Amino acid sequence: MALDRVVATLTASKVRTALVGLIVVAAAVGGAFALGVFGVPSVAAVNNSFGEVTDEKTVVETDLVVSNPNPFGVGLDGVSVDYAVSMNDVEMARGGREGVSVAAGNSSIAFQTDLENEAIPPWWTSHVRNDERTTVAIDARVSSERLGRGTNLTRTREIETDLIGAFTSEETRPVNADAPLVDDPVLYVNETRGRWGTVTDAETPIAMEFDVYNPNLEPYVVTEIGYDVTMNGVEMGSGSTAEEYVIPSYGSETVELTAALRNERLDDWWVTHLDESVNGHQVSDLRIEFYAVVELPGGERVTVPLDALTYEETVQTDIFDEGLHRGSGDESASGSGGSDDETTDDGASDENTTDDGTSGGDSTDENTTDDGSNDGNTTDGNTTDDDDDDGGLLPLSVD
């Protein structure tokens, strides 16, 4: 009996010691998190691309890289990941996950979010009003409800286009009537100018001017100039002038025309812009065709196609910095400017944070391996790993 009591006493003592040890460890871990000794998982990178496109929706495919600085995995019910994509402050897509578990190091999680094509017209009007400039902003956040902390990553990219800049020209182009008993050319267009007008929710106007010269002894009357605008074959607008212009003998006159793009057709154009089978991914051809109705000296009116004035411009974009069109040598390719990444921690400063936990005023954009060392190569904030099998992205599970 005495031996049994001794054994029981020793066993109870060991259990109490183990429980105390577990409590101490739990308290130490909790305190370490609270004091910031262990880090809260953060967003290391966000990579987006366009997926399937329909008449109503565009799929945005997102690969979000979460960095866990701790030597062990983190799996808390309160850990969530959220991100949003905006263009000139127009929200284009938003997504997220809750109940995320991440292994030590870098982990990757894939999202698919629908971009409603009806958001394209508001973005377009902001793009034109901003001199054909767009700021693409990607905001991602990893937060822990239990720890009451979170980290943010903001990536911005500048996109620029020039759809109508080349319309302004001093090239002289003839206007031929191709009519019996009429000597061509009946007129010359010596200069053209174009600029965006006042954009509304309904239409995007292009204000155009044509300096027309009459090389003949008799005056000619231009009773109408009409236009048809297409983008990747989508009819964007058509119309004509309502004012007559008399071009005096051996004299010049400036003819004005406003061509209006119907913004309600922009979502139809957007589908073709992303359709690689049309012109290539994120490639569009703008085409404006003109015609004139000219009253000849005898009173006869002829409709003259102004083929020499047909305006064509190709525009390319790379909205998510996928590396499209690089090395093509095409000066019309747009999307200049790199990506700026900014990582912030709740309650911390707004300085950019590198993967090793140090902070500085400027983003390093250096490749970072899983052991925290830098290899000196410059990228847009993407992470790499020495193991070619997983590309530096460790498994991530969702509870």
Score class of each variant (00 low, 15 high):
Arg5Phe: 07
Trp196Tyr: 15
Thr364Pro: 10
Pro180Glu: 03
Thr134Met: 08
Pro305Arg: 01
Ala292Thr: 08
Asp362Gly: 09
Asp55Tyr: 07
Val25Phe: 09
Asp371Pro: 04
Ile120Trp: 00
Ser339Tyr: 08
Asp4Gly: 11
Leu76Phe: 05
Leu296Lys: 09
Leu396Ile: 10
Ala28Arg: 06
Ala44Cys: 03
Val304Phe: 03
Ala44Asp: 00
Gly99Cys: 04
Asp370Pro: 07
Glu264Trp: 09
Tyr83Glu: 02
Asp4Ala: 15
Ile206His: 07
Leu324Cys: 06
Gly51Lys: 14
Asn117Ser: 12
Asp77Met: 02
Asn47Leu: 00
Ser144His: 10
Ile288Asp: 13
Ser334Lys: 03
Val102Ala: 00
Thr384Ser: 10
Val46Thr: 14
Ala119Glu: 07
Pro174Ala: 06
Val189Tyr: 01
Gly105Cys: 01
Glu256Asp: 14
Glu116Gln: 13
Ala259Arg: 11
Pro71Gly: 07
Val199Asn: 08
Gly39Leu: 06
Met231Phe: 06
Asp183Phe: 11
Val175Phe: 07
Gly298Met: 05
Ala26Ser: 15
Asp375Pro: 04
Asp330Ile: 11
Pro71Phe: 10
His273Asp: 02
Val302Phe: 04
Val294Asp: 06
Gly105Met: 06
Ser397Ala: 12
Ile225His: 03
Ala259His: 09
His127Phe: 13
Val29Arg: 07
Ser349Trp: 11
Leu306Ala: 01
Asn377Tyr: 14
Glu253Trp: 09
Val128Thr: 11
Thr9Pro: 03
Val6Trp: 10
Asn152Pro: 02
Glu331Phe: 08
Thr17Arg: 07
Glu342His: 13
Arg94Leu: 10
Glu235Gly: 10
Asp340Val: 11
Asp285Gln: 15
Glu313His: 12
Asp370Tyr: 12
Thr378Met: 00
Val255Asn: 14
Glu351Leu: 15
Ala34Pro: 02
Gly376Asp: 04
Gly105Trp: 02
Arg262Tyr: 13
Gln282Ser: 14
Arg173Met: 12
Val175Gly: 12
Thr151Leu: 14
Val186Met: 01
Glu264Asp: 15
Ala32Gly: 15
Asp389His: 07
Asn374Asp: 08
Asp387Tyr: 01
Phe33Gly: 01
Ser397Thr: 14
Leu394Tyr: 04
Gly75Glu: 02
Gly75Tyr: 03
Val294Pro: 05
Val136Glu: 04
Asn68Cys: 05
Thr379Arg: 00
Leu163Lys: 12
Ala34Phe: 09
Gly165Asn: 10
